[in-house]
Design a protein around this nucleic acid. Sequence first.
DNA 1: TAGATTGTTAATCGATTAACAATC
DNA 2: TAGATTGTTAATCGATTAACAATC
Lengths: 229, 229
Amino acid sequence: MAPAARRRITVPGLRGSDRAVPAATVARLPLYLRALVALEDGGVPKVSSDQLAAHAGVTSAKLRKDLSFLGSYGRRGVGYDVAGLRASIEDEMGLTRDLPVLIVGVGNLGHALANYGGLSGRGFRVVGLVDSAEPLIGTTVAGVRIRPVTELEMLVSQHPGCIGVVAVPAMAAKEVTDRLVRAGVRSILTFAPVTLDVPSGVHVRKVDLAVELQILAYHERARTEAVAG
Amino acid sequence: MAPAARRRITVPGLRGSDRAVPAATVARLPLYLRALVALEDGGVPKVSSDQLAAHAGVTSAKLRKDLSFLGSYGRRGVGYDVAGLRASIEDEMGLTRDLPVLIVGVGNLGHALANYGGLSGRGFRVVGLVDSAEPLIGTTVAGVRIRPVTELEMLVSQHPGCIGVVAVPAMAAKEVTDRLVRAGVRSILTFAPVTLDVPSGVHVRKVDLAVELQILAYHERARTEAVAG
DNA sequence: TAGATTGTTAATCGATTAACAATC
DNA sequence: TAGATTGTTAATCGATTAACAATC
């Protein structure tokens, strides 16, 4: 009988899905990536888990556990190769080629995002800005011309796999989200303080400034009452 | 004459500290609060955990567990009193009187926050805007005059217990944070993509737009590769 | 009472942490 | 070899979920 041909334990063609990276780890990989980029820019070739963890603001045990999900990229007794680990994380995160980003709503927030230096050059490219306000149409922000919302669907089809950013007032957020989803967008970042219902398979991340402040308020209250107690 | 409307079942003088509310619950209370405000504005007097959970985008089991940490504010077979539960959460979160907010850095992001309607009227009041750019000094945003950064310490001392918002470029974030902490601020919201070291007892919440996009990129990559397989 | 819904329990799941054998 | 540091294990901790007795 034939010897078992070298069998991978993983399902062919499903690379990545075999060793599911925990959500908490995925959320920290960008922090490590940023620290690594800074070290590389500073000409540092090697780094230990202790050093890298300090840069990223986590414990070294957590860092090593996180990196272990990507594979073994360190050398015992030595540490990690800065450039190599950086490339590994970029690869794992899907940042090897620029990801198109479409920003809906060019108020102060949309403006801030379009101008954010941390986007271009870090794996993202703003490919579209749309707004519903007449006076804005045709003007440019960060080198990109603002288009009417009616062109949203066209822009999405021109940039398959793009990330949609919802930076419109709360009132308009549901409709914009529905349109993005219908047009084929499956990754959405929203700043609107409303609950968005999307089909399963669509990823939504929500950044809510009021919520962040309210969480801080909770701790501030706890402190004040402890003193007044 | 006012009858004692509210009784406390908790240990006197230890209110709050005896039943530590889990961090995950604290982060969700603002979502419930927002849903309750919307219901109240709509004239809805009662709500079940199923309904409220749907509004907030969580499961009803999770909602009931979360609320159980605040005490028993529902009635079996009936549901929750919308106004009453709203007041309880606001009380628990420390939103009964306006919390002063000091925004450092009035670029697009600081601008967006200062103009954000969800702040005033929801427990917060922007009491100061500071920036280092000469041309901005003296101009007003959302009715607040922009002051030079040199007045940061004075503003903090005028508003004890205020929340500091760091909306300056990454380069300046560390120094601004140190100054806020030295001046006595113990709650900080930062948008700068850098690791901030603060003394224990100081709460920092970090909102990082690039990190959010990178997390979405990870899922987008996973999908693309599954298809390309 | 009969139906509805909470508050709580117990099981499960996922994340963190400390420690150390493996190994450079 | 001796010292350093990773990768992994096992224990702990915290969060989620399902189910249902309590009770309105």
